[in-house]
């Protein structure tokens, strides 16, 4: 007997996992640095290319590629933040936002000049499919890796935020940076860590996108609206909310594609945004219903 909706839920979880990895980093920066980083998509792209180089040039497998991408993107993202964003920190959120748009454009076109516009594919073994025909669903090892990596990253982040002094400092800073500073928290150090984690997670998302699709200069940019939506849906500034928002978005898109008439099945993504708008009208604070800190 086929189980209803299981297949759609699996597809939604996979889609949500890509988005979750990007959205967590995006929302961490928003919550702690008080900045909407529109170059976050390019951090994902950097991760995709780092993974590509690790696999194609280095001959490494996917686990090493994930680690390499995390490290490379963390360092590059942190470097970009120190070089471009931190000097503008006192200018306020809007100049920072506009700067990030410019940085994104420069990075995207810079990568296009260096790597060329064409898509590059990771040469990895073909995925193995596990079929459960009687139950009416299947999944592949590649899909499980995507979901597993995303969940592992979320758990690791949760443990970091709740069990380490640095993580607790981050949460304190997110709540009230001035108060955190008064209580002796090195908020500058916290910001460094935020950029490293945020960028590193984007890099991991990039590798998984490259595995599933390809690496090209707009790999991350193409996902930016989904990431932004997941972050808002979950409650901007809340990493937990972003994760929930990402999975709700992924499942929502998957279900919309399934249940919409086939003539308008390409509206699946659009329908997800319609749901988002509806949710925000009813619950402007997103899923966690939590206003973001004052800077």
């Amino acid at each position: 007997m086929a189980l209803p909706l299981v297949q759609e839920l699996i597809f939604g979880l996979v889609l949500g996992s890509f988005v979750a990895l990007g959205a967590v980093g995006f929302t961490l920066v928003y919550g702690l640095v008080d900045m909407i980083n529109f170059a976050h998509g390019e951090f994902i792209t950097i991760g995709a290319f780092a993974g590509l180089v690790a696999v194609s040039t280095g001959g490494f497998g996917l686990p090493v590629a994930l680690v390499v991408s995390f490290l490379v993107t963390a360092v590059v993202g942190w470097g970009i933040a120190q070089l471009i964003y931190e000097p503008l920190n006192d200018a306020g959120p809007i100049p920072l936002l506009l700067t990030s748009i410019g940085a994104g454009l420069a990075l995207r076109n810079g990568m296009r000049l260096v790597a060329g516009p064409s898509a590059r594919y990771l040469e990895l073994p073909s995925p193995t499919t596990y079929r459960f025909d009687e139950l009416g669903f299947f999944f592949t090892d590649q899909q499980m890796i995507v979901v597993g990596v995303a969940l592992a990253a979320v758990v690791a982040l949760h443990l970091f935020l709740s069990r380490t002094m640095l993580g607790i400092s981050m949460r304190a800073t997110a709540d009230n940076e001035d108060l955190a500073l008064v209580t002796g928290i090195d908020t500058k150090r916290v910001r460094h860590v935020v950029w490293l984690i945020s960028s590193g997670l984007a890099g991991v998302a990039g590798v998984l996108l490259a595995v599933s699709r390809s690496a090209n200069p707009s790999t991350g940019f193409d996902q930016l609206l989904l990431i932004l939506t997941a972050a808002i849906l979950g409650g901007a500034g809340s990493p937990y909310g972003a994760v929930v928002g990402a999975y709700l978005l992924g499942i929502g898109i998957s279900l919309a594609i399934t249940f919409l008439p086939t003539a308008v099945s390409d509206f699946g993504t659009t329908m997800a945004f319609v749901v988002l708008i509806a949710v925000l009208l009813v619950r402007p604070g997103g899923i966690v219903n939590q206003e973001v800190r004052s800077s």
């Binding site: 597809f11 599933s212 996902q223 399934t258 086939t262 099945s265 699946g268």
Partner: peptide, 10 residues
């Protein structure tokens, strides 16, 4: 899209 499994399934 990062995956087209839903559309293929339909």
């Amino acid at each position: 899209q990062s995956s087209y499994q839903s559309s293929l399934n339909v």
